[in-house]
Design a protein around this nucleic acid. Structure first.
Length: 293
DNA sequence: CTCCAGGGATGAT
DNA sequence: ATCATCCATGGA
């Protein structure tokens, strides 16, 4: 196996792969094995260098967006205590450029699921419907195409622990496979129109649409608000606000976090998830109940 | 065992 | 327009 070395300053492979953007990489020795699109890849980081299985250098550099000016992006974050803590904690985290269908399908499956569950769903979909590849003596699977998912049945998808999400994934896969929507051509749309088109797909609402925009369409302003981010916003930015609805939070995040809001969001998300504490509102304040490992 | 999760669709106010 | 309810599943 030929291994190429590529420079990867301002990058943390492990943090990036563990930050809830992608769900299929598995640890192998000191590195990770998985698929980028159709190609099986092995990755290992040593300091500021990335060691990549043969021929995948360009693929890897693009996937991990090593061209993003990360220090400038982080410098554009709002200067407050919460953001600074997350920025320090997540140093080297980059927003990945994911394949569009893979990202869309995965986040349709993500609703009301913990990250560990999404990993299982991703693995089962790949093992059952994807294509097998081999890398460093390991078997990995590509993510199944929309056509392959569309050719399956709802019951087969339910067999991948999808539950009620199976119907949505199948319906969206059919629209993509039949050409009713063209995910690639949607790249030319401005944010507002892209979001509106994505939200017309079954199982896609504002949150999933923003994830796909951020992770697959490189819309670095897109700011997904899930239960974790909503908790951070309520507890840290509006600690005693009453009647904070979704629209109010949306208005705040869109103007406060700015042009790289999606990056800021990902840092806040990963930081919160890795340092999670249970809290409860008590006499207008949030108090810690118990710390979870 | 219980709790809860990178939500969305639907129907009632 | 906002709000409540339901939807399945399994790791922690």
């Amino acid at each position: 196996m030929q291994i190429a070395k590529i420079p990867a300053p301002d990058f943390d492979l492990a943090v990036t792969l563990d930050s809830g953007q992608v769900f299929h990489w598995k640890e192998v020795g000191d590195g990770f094995a998985g698929a980028i699109g159709d190609s099986a890849v092995y990755l290992e980081q040593r300091g500021d260098s990335l060691f990549v299985s043969g021929g995948a250098e360009g693929l890897v550099g693009n996937y991990f967006a090593l061209d993003h000016p990360l220090s400038e992006i982080c410098a554009s974050f709002p200067n407050d205590a919460v953001m600074n803590a997350a920025k320090h904690f997540c140093r080297g985290l980059r927003i990945i450029r994911q394949p569009k269908w893979e990202s869309l399908a995965t986040f349709i499956c993500s609703s009301m699921k913990q990250v560990a569950h999404i990993r299982q769903i991703s693995r089962k979909l790949r093992e059952r419907f994807g294509e097998e590849r081999k890398i460093v003596n390991r078997v990995v699977f590509t993510f199944p195409s929309a056509k392959r998912i569309a050719a399956s049945s709802e019951n087969e998808l339910r067999g991948c622990a999808l539950g009620y999400r199976a119907k949505n994934l199948l319906a969206t896969a059919r629209q993509v496979a039949h050409g009713e929507v063209n995910l690639e051509k949607m790249s030319i749309l401005p944010d507002v129109d892209l979001r509106a088109h994505l939200c017309e797909l079954p199982g896609v609402g504002a949150k999933v649409a923003n994830c796909v925009m951020l992770f697959a369409y490189e819309r670095l302003r897109a700011f997904p608000i899930d239960v974790w981010i909503e908790r951070v916003l309520r507890e840290k930015y509006f600690p005693r606000a009453r009647k904070l609805n979704a629209g109010r939070l949306r208005a705040f995040t869109d103007k406060y976090f700015g042009d790289h809001g999606g990056y800021a969001q990902q840092y806040l998300f990963h930081h919160a998830r890795m340092t999670k504490t249970r809290t409860k509102r008590k006499r207008g304040r949030f108090v810690t109940l118990s710390r979870v490992k």
